[in-house]
């Protein structure tokens, strides 16, 4: 079933891709093939292979239960927030929070996870900023 859904999404994606390819504005500079043909070929391969999974799906993979899916979803959400907060809060604070979250979710008691988060953040800051001289995001506190 998963494969059929996946194949269905693939077919829709392929049709969308080919449709978008036909909308590409042609330029006055032109070669024999143009910018549209190759994407259309690729879109076709994408569509045909997706059609194959719809018709001949593999055995069902073991999806996690709802809790597992929520786990992945929240982790991705934390990472998205991390990416957006990085320029605002700076490297030190955001990294400590994000690392503590992931450590906590990997079954570490909360207090230990916070310590781990802070140490990971500090450790990376020392290695990357102080030793290697990389430019990390600066926050209001200067780190």
């Amino acid at each position: 079933m998963s494969d059929r859904v996946f194949g269905g999404i693939g077919v829709v994606l392929a049709i969308f891709f080919i449709w978008q390819a036909t909308l590409i504005q042609e330029s006055f500079i032109q070669d024999a093939v143009g910018p549209k043909v190759f994407p259309v070929i690729i879109g076709t391969v994408l569509g045909l292979s997706s059609l194959y999974f719809v018709l001949k799906p593999d055995p069902e993979p073991s999806w996690p239960r709802f809790g597992g899916l929520a786990e992945i979803g929240f982790a991705a959400l934390v990472m998205v927030i991390y990416a957006m907060a990085l320029p605002e809060l700076g490297f030190g604070i955001s990294t400590a929070i994000a690392a503590a979250y992931i450590t906590w979710r990997l079954e570490t008691p909360p207090l230990k996870a916070i310590i781990a988060g802070v140490s990971i953040s500090a450790g990376l800051y020392i290695v990357f900023r102080l030793i290697l001289g990389l430019s990390l995001a600066r926050g209001p506190l200067g780190f």
Partner: peptide
Amino acid sequence: PRYLMPIVAMVSFVGIYGISG
């Protein structure tokens, strides 16, 4: 791995941010 994996994730972020900011 519960200490290792957060480090892997954070190093990935640091690295990519370091290249493009």
